[in-house]
């Protein structure tokens, strides 16, 4: 199968799954913004979304497709890196330099990806386990109602010093994600062949915009609750 056996086929899989995950991030990030809006204006948008998605069949189907996307992206990353290290051989250069125009993140995609996955595990435990998982299995995984997502998030981020540590962890995670995406998005487009002498510069800009937008949506929520928390601690 050429999607597994040829280098461009493998890269194609990485690109498609990567772009799919970016679209999911934009979807997820837009929903998160409701948390800030709710807190500022006293609305119930986030909980409405939690209720709407919850443990309904379409949310579960979406989650399974998403999990598959993450898994394939993750497995191919290790497969590609393993092959690339073998292609490089065992002898290393005595003097290593980074040529001008080569992004640091492009050489560290696996490491950044691992940080993102670790952050994801923490995130799944804190949020998903207490929301969709609790609703699905009926097991009480926290003191909160699994459909009251807003309260779960707010508690996690504004829970005194613990909340500050969580916010900082999320900020590190999101920064790693930004670096990963700032190379990943344009690299995916390039691999799909959507580039030429003119578009090469454009897709790099598009990549940076996408990365900033996707990460920015999440960052706003974290920074907002960090501010609220510091305000509460100071008071």
């Amino acid at each position: 199968m050429w999607l597994k056996d040829s280098s461009i086929g493998r890269k194609f899989i990485m690109s498609i799954t990567g772009l799919f995950l970016v679209l999911f991030l934009l979807f997820h990030g837009s929903m998160n913004i409701c948390l800030v809006v709710d807190d500022l204006f006293g609305t119930q948008g986030y909980n409405w979304i939690c209720e709407m998605l919850g443990a309904n069949w379409y949310a579960i189907a979406g989650t399974l497709v998403l999990a598959l996307g993450v898994l394939v992206h993750f497995l191919y990353a290790f497969y590609l890196t393993f092959q690339n290290r073998r292609a490089r051989g065992n002898s290393r250069y005595a003097v290593e330099t980074c040529p001008e125009g080569v992004e640091w993140q492009s050489k560290n995609m696996l490491v950044l990806g691992i940080i993102v996955i670790l952050g994801l595990c923490l995130h799944l435990y804190n949020m998903w386990f207490k929301m969709q998982f609790a609703e699905l299995t009926g097991i009480a995984t926290s003191v909160f109602n699994p459909q009251d997502g807003s309260a779960i998030v707010k508690y996690l981020f504004t829970n005194g010093w613990c909340g500050i540590i969580y916010c900082l962890a999320y900020i590190v995670w999101l920064c790693a994600l930004w670096f990963h995406l700032s190379h990943g998005v344009w690299s995916a487009l390039q691999t799909l062949g959507w580039s030429n002498l003119i578009w090469l510069k454009r897709i790099k800009v598009i990549g940076t915009i996408f990365a900033t937008l996707a990460v920015g949506l999440f960052m706003i929520v974290v920074l907002y609750f960090l501010g609220v928390n510091i305000g509460m601690l100071a008071a």
Binding site: S7, Q83, A87, P99, G101, V102, Q190
Partner: peptide, 17 residues
């Protein structure tokens, strides 16, 4: 190229630089 054991391109751009 794949048969000869060359690696998978990750668009670092070191080649063109």
């Amino acid at each position: 190229m794949d048969e000869l054991g060359f690696g998978n391109c990750t668009n670092t751009g070191a080649c063109a630089a």
